[in-house]
Write a protein that binds this DNA or RNA. Structure first.
Length: 423
DNA sequence: TCTGGGGTCCTAGGACCC
DNA sequence: TCTGGGGTCCTAGGACCC
């Protein structure tokens, strides 16, 4: 029998913050998006206070102050490292694993029939808690979509102890009737409205729609698969090998309004360097780099302005210098003065493996020297922290940089942030 | 005052070819 | 009156995910 488990860290970012600060146990905490803008993670206690996901911080300021909610800027270095530890532990529970996101993974439990899978789920949960310090939930079912739903149930009803197994067709139907259709993996805002409009409210309702209706109304083959999966027919296999990325982006809103070309050039240099480093870490090269600069789309006082360009490179590359100079040359042409710039970003596309560079007759790929330079740069920045070594064009002041007023220390990845142990 | 960042897949439709 | 049919490639945009 085909069996999938979905394991995810509870309130992952909030839990990461808590691992190194046990005094926060039982206290409400939230984690913010970039520039301390929106709430992107909440501990259970913060959820209970009615703080919604994704709201701008200023809208819930009063709840936060009144209840002493602890607020953290996001600390992706920490979360990434905690994620790696969690995944390593989880990988020991099955020969087949798909890391689905920073805090979620699927395991294949096919052929584990001789185990009591509820007990096995409990063991997984306990081990992760012990080894990594993160509480997690385990959902088990015969398709990925059902495993996702089982995971929701595990979280929703504490009496299951954080583990739920949809182990029979009868239980599947019973469970689907209690799940809102918007809690189904693959149903977002638009589809929810469409489904509700025709009287479909629960996951069970959705499991009974005709295939041709799903085909026509839920994105074609995607919708058909979704309905099959709800019915226990597995259409989405585990993706065991991580395909290389097809696009890589680095974009950020500024910490303040930017008006000068020089500062935009600095920001685009920094983002290009980050993108290029990701590219090299993937072992890929890019044939195209695009960038944009724009003003605040939410502003009611100033009109929205956005510009940028896609630049096709003569030869695919991952070289920071080449990519940066392409962007900065183009910025000279697209920059418009008198605009209150709010955000900028770059995107690398048409990626391919670095060993596949096809030299044409008149141009050639990166020289050995250039490659060694990039390797050295990556080595230094990995060891001593991002942006220890940068191109001159990235500047040193970075007045436009992201606001991070509540950042926790990088306990696991920075020597200077190691916790002291007092005897 | 204050509104994230980084991805994927799929479809429809146009251009073009024979 | 009737105005082919089948195929590919590309792009823009929609929808979703965490």
């Amino acid at each position: 029998m085909v069996v999938f488990a979905l394991i995810d860290g509870n309130n992952f970012y909030a839990s990461c913050e808590r691992v190194f600060n046990p005094r926060l146990e039982g206290k409400p905490i939230v984690v913010l998006s970039n520039n301390d803008g929106c709430i992107i993670a909440r501990s259970g206690e913060a959820k209970a206070l009615g703080i919604p996901m994704g709201v701008p911080l200023h809208k819930v300021k009063s709840i936060i102050t009144a209840n002493g909610v602890k607020v953290f800027s996001s600390n992706y270095t920490l979360y990434g490292d905690m994620s790696a530890r969690m995944m390593q532990t989880l990988g020991e529970f099955s020969p087949e694993m798909e890391i689905y996101s920073i805090d979620e993974c699927f395991l294949s439990l096919s052929g584990f029939d001789h185990f009591n899978l509820n007990d096995y789920g409990q063991l997984i949960k306990k081990t992760v808690r012990q080894n990594v310090g993160i509480p997690c939930g385990v959902g088990i079912g015969s398709t990925k979509t059902l495993a996702k739903i089982a995971n929701k149930i595990a979280k929703k009803y504490p009496e299951y102890g954080g583990v739920f197994f949809i182990n029979s067709p009868e239980k599947r139907i019973e469970v689907l009737k209690t799940i809102g259709v918007d809690d189904v993996w693959g149903v977002g805002r638009k589809y929810l409205a469409k489904l509700n409009a025709v009287g479909i409210h629960t996951a069970y309702d959705l499991s009974t729609v005709r295939k041709d209706w799903a085909q026509k109304n839920l994105g074609g083959i995607v919708g058909v698969r979704l309905v099959h999966e709800l019915n226990g027919l597995s259409c989405l296999p585990l993706e065991l090998i991580q395909e290389p990325k097809k696009n890589i982006a680095a974009t950020r809103a500024f910490g303040k309004i930017v008006t000068s070309k020089d500062e935009l050039a600095e920001a685009l240099s920094v983002y290009t360097a980050r993108g290029a480093a990701k590219l090299r870490a993937e072992g890929s090269i890019a044939k195209q780099i695009s960038y944009f600069i724009h003003s605040n789309p939410f502003s009611k006082t100033y009109p929205y302005f956005s510009t940028g360009q896609s630049i096709t490179l003569p030869v695919a590359t991952s070289n920071t210098c080449k990519l940066t100079s392409a962007v900065l040359r183009s910025l000279e042409k697209t920059f418009r003065p008198g605009i209150r710039y709010h955000k900028a970003g770059i995107m690398l596309s048409f990626l391919r493996p670095e060993d596949s560079v096809q030299d044409d007759l008149f141009s050639c790929g990166d020289s050995e020297r250039a490659k060694v330079l990039m390797q050295t740069l990556d080595k230094l920045n990995n060891r001593y922290g991002r942006e220890t070594v940068v191109l001159g064009s990235a500047g040193f002041k970075r007045d436009w940089g992201t606001r991070v007023d509540n950042r926790s220390p990088q306990y696991t990845t920075s020597w200077t942030d190691l916790m002291p142990v007092r005897g």
